[in-house]
Design a protein around this nucleic acid. Structure first.
Lengths: 184, 184
DNA sequence: CGACACGGAGAACCAGCGTTCTCTAGGCTA
DNA sequence: TAGCCTAGAGAACGCTGGTTCTCCGTGTCG
């Protein structure tokens, strides 16, 4: 198996297992078994478990935001593009594997002891805010609206995880529509 | 030391340490040292670490919501009482020890492996929703407003934890005011 | 054909930690 | 005062898991 394949499979396994069960509940041996990549190779690619964690978070940041952008891009109208964010959330929440935001979960688990993980969370949320600001600006809305939308997004992500319901996406969408109307 | 004192000191230590560092980063020996309660006594009071965790969450649920209610009760006007929730958040976020919502953090860390912790999180959020519904009803607003306010509260709690800023409380308050205006 | 570099499987090592056990000292009762 | 119950300190136990090491088979190059 070549290096690139091993890295991809390791990150796939890390993403699946760490997201599903949390970091401390998953051992490097579990990653090895799921990825089919030997421990020796794992440690050559990622010198420590923490670096495997941050690597999977960085890759996930790209794919998650690409998925969101792809969904939003199906709309033309700037206001509809903003509301499409919440439709995307609903689709996400409906997935059986949904278990909240990986960064929030890992921040709760490791934020206090791993500055690297805390920083990944900060970067991810900052990127989300940046994207929402672009959407708000395109819709001729003030920056502050994007900050408020981010709170709705994060709140919905958390509540959907804890309650196991996708309803928060609908509630957040309705609130977002109200905020949009009010800032017209 | 009598049993009641030992229990109080154990829960104090658990709340401080588990909230500050997370559960798996704190050992029972750390709890013993911080509480000044022997391991034997700890295990008499709480037969397992998980039960100590759920016990501290339950006690914290009471004290946190009492603190919120006390702050809200300083206002008479029903609309102001709703906005007071966000002033309370700002005060909370400004505390140096602030590290997000204990239930969200522990849900991220243990939710996948401990149904008891996941259930505590659900109960806590449900209680918060119930309280917001009371406030909304008193202000003559529909139930749906309370659900939307909860998203703002949760989003602010998360963002304040990750960014280390108290600004999310102000953003959430502004959004709440807009939603209040729109549902008048 | 032979030496060698590489990679994998799994053992080994070591530390941390949840939980239980042992031993001892102190106080209470008869 | 003698016996007993309690509680605490700390060791012990058993397990898990991150990280490293050993051994062996394979394929490659000279």
């Amino acid at each position: 198996m070549d290096v690139g394949t091993a890295e991809t499979r390791a990150l796939d396994a890390a993403e699946d297992l760490f997201y599903r069960r949390g970091v401390h509940a998953v051992g490097m041996a579990d990653i090895r078994d799921a990825a089919g990549v030997s421990l020796k190779r794992l440690y050559q690619l990622f010198p420590s478990k923490e670096q495997l964690v941050t690597a999977f978070l960085r890759r996930r940041d790209g794919s998650l935001r690409a998925s969101l952008a792809a969904h939003v891009d199906r709309r033309q109208d700037p206001d509809q593009r903003i509301l499409a964010v919440f439709d995307w959330l609903r689709k996400w929440f409906a997935e059986p594997s949904y278990r909240g935001c990986a960064w929030v979960n890992l921040f709760g688990e490791l934020g206090a002891t791993s500055p690297a993980v805390a920083e990944e969370a900060r970067l991810h949320k900052d990127a989300m805010l940046g994207y929402l600001r672009e959407l708000a600006a395109a819709a001729g809305r003030p920056t502050e609206l994007a900050d408020q939308l981010l709170l709705l997004v994060e709140g919905a992500i958390t509540m959907a995880a804890i309650t196991g319901s996708e309803a928060p996406a609908l509630r957040a969408r309705a609130a977002a529509a109200t905020l949009l109307d009010a800032s017209r």
